[in-house]
Design a protein around this nucleic acid. Structure first.
Lengths: 223, 223
DNA sequence: GTCTATAAAGTGATAGAC
DNA sequence: GTCTATCACTTTATAGAC
């Protein structure tokens, strides 16, 4: 495996930045080496010189965004779980730990929020999932970790249901990344709140009859 | 616009059938004219002779599956709405009218259920949504029609919330088509039921405190 | 209808000069 | 590090023979 970092500046960085933009806009299948080098006003051979191959550059772009995103997701979940102490964490807070890094990492990405979401959405919905095993593994690990917390938060939901519901939630989120509401129609924060409420209700389905949703403990959650 | 039908048999049909299979498996960006003609054991020029161009064939594949799907969705919604008479239709039945045609049309498609779902999922998540205006319009029309029924079924949910929730539901469904649970893990019918319950709970969120979900009327719904 | 041959453009990658 | 030139393919599409 090659270097998994990108310099802060210089020609390699420029290629990388231009590549991200194009990938976010057109998708991984539709961006050629020439598209990238032309947009960067650099030589055709530059991609192969700096990244070994087209695939090397594309993998690096994925790695660069997905790994920090996954780390923040795990870190936030850790915090939420610790706060819940013995009791299971509040469902809304688990979902928040799942979605908020998508907003937070956008700010650290150097890309516009729009572009970052497009890019991440395209990565997560890649058709032929032949991306690097390291990324695949990391994604799986995060999903497993969240599934475990959800099981604790929703002990009465049988695992087949819970897995399916987590799946539905994930799909809704990817679709949201790829097809965001127009910015003037809705703030990101409002959309996030709507998503969390929607997903929480879906995940919780069927558990409220015996113990109706208590407003008390959940009131500490700020939306 | 060209003919929007395909003969029951013959070389044109063979090309069409092979094309659907490849498109379902690899996606629209990654299937070439040569892929198709080679798999069909026909000449390279056959696609252009029978369908005018690669794009003509691809558009026809979309048209062939999306239009009947949309029609069945509208027809089922009509039935549900009529049954509801003056009252608004049951939420679960509206969602059922939205998702069940995906199972039903699979049987009429000539494709395996798997392939049909892959194909439709890929069509609905096409990156550069440059597909024919007729299809785009039809999809929009169906979405609008369902939105109207949902508004009637959930009068207390403000429209920004409802639109967002419908969006989330759509995303979850597309993701489900593209990433189906393994067939031995779960029957289609069970997955459908799970999806409907998840989506209904999400759409209904916040409406249950004053008027707790009545089991009576919903009990007529069969899952 | 079916085929060959070919056009015209695009693809990723690399050798080798500077 | 940067560039040109080029290789070896692949792409869609079409003209024209059969």
């Amino acid at each position: 495996m090659r270097e998994m970092t990108v310099p802060e500046s210089g020609p390699k960085r420029k290629l990388f930045d231009v590549a991200q933009q194009l990938l976010a806009a057109k998708g991984f299948e539709l961006v050629s080496v020439r598209d990238i080098t032309q947009a960067a006003e650099m030589n055709v051979a530059a991609v192969n010189y700096h990244f070994g191959s087209r695939d090397g550059l594309l993998s690096l772009v994925m790695y660069h965004h997905i790994m920090p995103l996954n780390e923040e997701r795990l870190a936030r979940l850790e915090t939420v779980d610790r706060k819940g102490a013995g009791k299971s964490a509040a469902l809304e807070e688990i979902i928040d730990a799942w979605v908020r890094p998508l907003v937070n990492q956008a700010r650290h990405s150097g890309l516009s929020e729009q572009s970052f979401h497009q890019l991440v959405g395209k990565i997560f919905s890649l058709q032929n999932k032949d991306f690097p095993a390291a990324i695949q593994d990391s994604i799986q690990q995060v999903a497993d970790r969240f599934t475990r917390s959800l099981v604790k938060a929703l002990p009465t939901v049988v695992s087949e249901d819970l897995n399916a519901r987590f799946h539905f939630m994930t799909g809704g989120l990817i679709h949201l990344l790829l097809n965001p509401p127009s910015q003037q129609a809705s703030t990101i924060e409002a959309t996030l709140g709507r998503f969390i409420r929607f997903a929480a209700a879906g995940l919780r389905e069927g558990t409220e009859t015996e113990a109706p949703a208590k407003k008390g403990p959940q009131a500490t959650f700020d939306f």
